[in-house]
Design a protein around this nucleic acid. Structure first.
Lengths: 191, 191
DNA sequence: TTTAACATGCGTGCAGCATGTATGTAAAGG
DNA sequence: CCTTTACATACATGCTGCACGCATGTTAAA
């Protein structure tokens, strides 16, 4: 039974990513040792350092895969709407649905900024969640009250509010309440 | 020249806190080694582990001192106002002023949640910034439109927006723009 | 007021462990 | 074949936390 190098590489990489993801979620990045990761993945540290430059690069790969999964989930469950308000609220529900998975808030919102730096962490979802949020918000502002020169800043603030809501929900808060509160914020902008 | 134990303890502790704060801001918690800290403080690791249970406890002490300093600065520069809206906006400016100091956003908003956990980090300013924010927001909601059952959630969301704005400002963003964007959010709630 | 007993602050050395790298080996690929 | 890829192993380095020890401060009795 001999496998091609492509297959071996992909199998090893995903085994490492899966194991690392599990342990990073369970114990956090700093408290997870590479020997634990490779043991859980069924490989040796040699394989890890062959495929990833260092532990941080492994975390980056985990975070990027996770962000891509979030974006994909939102994409598939998106309800296209002509009404900017409804589109935004539907996007919010999709975001909360996606972020409800196992340890996503911890990985993407808690550890990633500290491990990778605020810039790198922001760049990860700059092309994902925040992109569509900016589009939705711009549409809303255009629809009501004309264009707003502060759309960039308002997007950042709303994005932070979305993230905070996702974390609270993951921590056991009432999801409906946070959806309603976000709706109030959004409606306030479309007065 | 002999000093009392009280004096020795306080001198050593503040030397450690000052040195640790500097290095945590410069290189981050994980990249700062205790030998570096004690060297900068002019003591040995024995002194560090005599005064603090471990490295994390040292960071906690640094973060708590920093949060207290922020609260104190806001307190002194607060402009009491009967108008809820003006009070909130003035509080925002005070918060941005306080958070503009050296590496406060990194310490309190980036590292603390990852190092101490989201719960512990939230508890630190639960009694500081978020407390007064909740008071101000409740007043605003009561003044306009009657009481809002979502004041708790709205406070959390606004707090996240404040923090995000402080980080962007510290990263070089236009402060006036973020103040204006926050004002739009707040005015929207007081429609 | 001296002195004895104790507590506190702190320096040093050690054990364990984690990271990253260098070197070696077997299989795949051309 | 000969090179490259995928990995395993061994090693060098550095960091953390603790145990032990010493000197100075503190207290209280004689």
């Amino acid at each position: 039974m001999s496998r091609s190098n492509k297959d071996r590489t992909e199998a090893t990489r995903t085994a490492l990513l899966d194991a690392a993801r599990r342990l990073f979620v369970e114990k956090g990045y700093a408290q997870t040792a590479t020997p634990d990761i490779v043991a859980a993945a069924g490989v040796t540290r040699g394989a890890l350092y062959h495929h990833f430059e260092d532990k941080k690069a492994l975390f980056l790969a985990v975070a990027e895969r996770e962000a891509a999964a979030v974006a994909a989930e939102i994409e598939t469950t998106a309800t296209p709407s002509t009404d900017a308000r409804m589109a935004l609220l539907s996007g919010a529900r999709g975001y909360f649905d996606a972020m409800a998975a196992n340890g996503r808030t911890r990985l993407l919102l808690l550890e990633a900024p500290a491990v990778l730096g605020a810039n790198a962490a922001a760049a990860i979802d700059r092309d994902n969640a925040e992109r569509s949020l900016h589009a939705g918000l711009s549409a809303l502002l255009r629809q009501h009250g004309g264009r707003d020169a502060l759309d960039r800043e308002l997007t950042a603030l709303l994005s932070a509010a979305f993230d905070r809501a996702a974390m609270e929900i993951a921590a056991g808060a009432d999801r409906k309440a946070y959806e309603a509160a976000l709706a109030e914020l959004i409606d306030g902008l479309a007065r």
